[in-house]
Amino acid sequence: MPYLSPREWYATLPTAHVSAGALLTDDRDRVLLVKPNYRPYWHVPGGTMEPGEAPHQVVVREIAEELGLRIGAGRLLVVDVVPPNPDMDRPMLHFTFDGGTVADPSAIRLAEDELDAFGFFTWEEAEARLSPALAPRVPAARRARERRETIYLPVDS
């Protein structure tokens, strides 16, 4: 095999989409979810990585854009992989960070061009509102937060 320059070699590697979100709760330990206007199910707040961004920066930017909240990306709670599907040709690597507690929910300013609603839900209600592919993030994030660990959710889990 001939020698490849670094640029050529990297071009041969598989690629993936990358997204990140924040587990945010209120003072009653309810989970904050958002309802995108372009999907039929609810989501943990967050979004996809832009060029030059790191996952923790995605969280800070997306929460500011979607909800008008200024947060820091706390501990990494969950890393999971959504396999390719008919709408997505590559796997999606997703990072869920601890966004802490929303002290004043009235400070939330919904980005109405992207989101229809937000709400705080019990852990069980939150899990039930997410798509089947994303639902495991909620109980995993809860366990990770409680145990102060990071959980990896492989594709086959």
Rank of each mutant, 00 (worst) to 15 (best):
T12K: 10
L13E: 11
L13N: 02
T15W: 12
A16P: 00
A16Y: 14
A16H: 11
V18Q: 15
V18P: 12
S19H: 01
A20R: 01
A20G: 06
G21I: 06
A22G: 14
L23N: 08
L23G: 06
L23E: 13
L24W: 02
L24M: 14
L24A: 04
T25W: 07
T25S: 13
D26K: 02
D27L: 12
D27Q: 12
R30S: 07
R30W: 10
L32C: 06
L32N: 02
L32H: 10
L33C: 05
P36I: 14
P36F: 09
P36C: 07
N37I: 14
Y38M: 09
Y38G: 05
Y38V: 13
Y41F: 07
W42M: 01
W42H: 06
W42N: 02
P45Q: 04
G47Q: 03
T48H: 04
E50D: 01
P51D: 13
P51W: 02
G52S: 06
G52H: 01
H56Y: 10
H56V: 00
Q57E: 15
V58I: 14
V59W: 01
V59F: 03
V60S: 04
V60E: 11
R61A: 07
E62I: 02
I63W: 02
A64M: 07
A64N: 06
E65I: 11
L67I: 09
L67M: 10
L67G: 03
G68P: 05
L69R: 10
R70N: 11
I71K: 05
I71L: 06
G72V: 06
G72F: 12
A73M: 09
G74W: 04
G74M: 09
G74H: 09
R75C: 06
L76Q: 12
L76G: 10
L76V: 14
L77N: 08
L77Y: 04
L77K: 00
V79L: 15
V79A: 14
D80C: 12
D80P: 01
V81H: 12
P83R: 14
P83Q: 13
P84S: 08
P84Y: 08
P84C: 12
P84T: 08
N85W: 07
N85T: 08
N85K: 15
P86A: 03
D87P: 00
D87T: 14
M88P: 00
D89E: 15
D89N: 10
R90L: 08
R90M: 07
M92E: 09
L93G: 00
L93T: 08
L93C: 03
L93V: 15
F95T: 05
F95L: 06
T96K: 00
F97T: 10
D98N: 12
D98C: 04
G99H: 07
G100L: 06
G100C: 04
T101A: 11
T101P: 05
V102N: 04
A103N: 13
D104S: 13
P105W: 08
P105C: 13
S106G: 07
I108H: 00
I108K: 02
L110C: 14
L110Q: 11
L110V: 14
A111C: 13
E112N: 12
E112M: 13
E112Q: 14
E112Y: 07
E114V: 11
L115Q: 06
L115D: 09
G119H: 12
G119L: 10
G119D: 11
F120S: 02
F120T: 01
F121I: 01
W123T: 07
W123F: 04
E125A: 14
E125I: 13
E127I: 14
A128V: 11
L130Q: 09
S131W: 08
P132H: 06
L134K: 02
